[in-house]
Amino acid sequence: MLAEKVSISLPTPLLEFVEHYKESHALKSRSKVIEMALERLQQESLEAAYRQAAADVDPAFDATNADGLRNETW
Rank of each mutant, 00 (worst) to 15 (best):
K28H: 11
L2R: 13
R40A: 06
S31D: 01
N65T: 01
S29C: 04
A60S: 15
D56S: 14
I34R: 04
A48M: 05
V18E: 04
A54R: 03
P13V: 07
E44R: 10
E35R: 13
H20P: 04
V18D: 01
L41E: 14
L27G: 04
F17G: 00
A48G: 02
K28Y: 08
I8R: 04
Q42F: 11
E16Y: 05
S31F: 08
D62C: 05
Y50L: 15
D62A: 15
S24G: 01
T73M: 06
N71D: 04
A63E: 07
S31W: 04
T64I: 06
L27N: 02
A63S: 07
E72G: 05
L14P: 01
G68L: 00
F17W: 13
M1I: 10
F61I: 14
Q52N: 09
E4C: 01
A3D: 10
L46V: 12
Y21Q: 08
E19D: 15
R51K: 12
D67Y: 07
D58A: 06
Q52Y: 07
L10C: 09
K32Y: 05
H25I: 00
V18C: 03
A66Y: 05
K22Q: 15
A53C: 09
A60K: 08
T12W: 08
M36R: 06
A54S: 04
V57H: 00
I34C: 03
M1R: 12
H25F: 05
L69Y: 13
E16T: 13
E35S: 14
V57K: 07
S29F: 01
H25R: 15
A48L: 06
L14V: 11
D58M: 07
I8M: 06
N71L: 13
L15F: 05
Y50N: 11
A60C: 08
T64R: 14
L38M: 15
L10Q: 08
A53R: 07
E23N: 08
D58Y: 06
K5P: 00
Q52L: 12
A49S: 11
S31L: 02
R70S: 12
E4K: 13
S9W: 01
K22G: 03
V18A: 01
V33E: 03
E4I: 06
G68S: 01
D62M: 09
S7I: 10
P59I: 05
E47L: 12
K32G: 03
A53S: 11
A55T: 09
T73K: 03
A3S: 12
M36D: 15
L15V: 00
E44Q: 14
L2C: 05
H25S: 02
H20G: 02
A3F: 07
L15D: 15
L41G: 07
E19H: 11
S7R: 10
L14F: 11
Y50M: 05
L2K: 11
K32S: 12
D56M: 03
E16A: 14
K5C: 05
L41S: 08
E72A: 10
Y50P: 04
L38G: 10
Q42Y: 14
K32R: 11
V57F: 02
E39D: 13
A26E: 05
R70G: 06
D56L: 06
A60P: 00
L14M: 14
L14H: 10
L14S: 09
H25D: 01
W74Q: 10
L46H: 12
S45A: 13
A60I: 08
A53G: 08
A49M: 05
A26Y: 00
A49C: 00
A54H: 06
L41A: 10
I8A: 07
D62K: 15
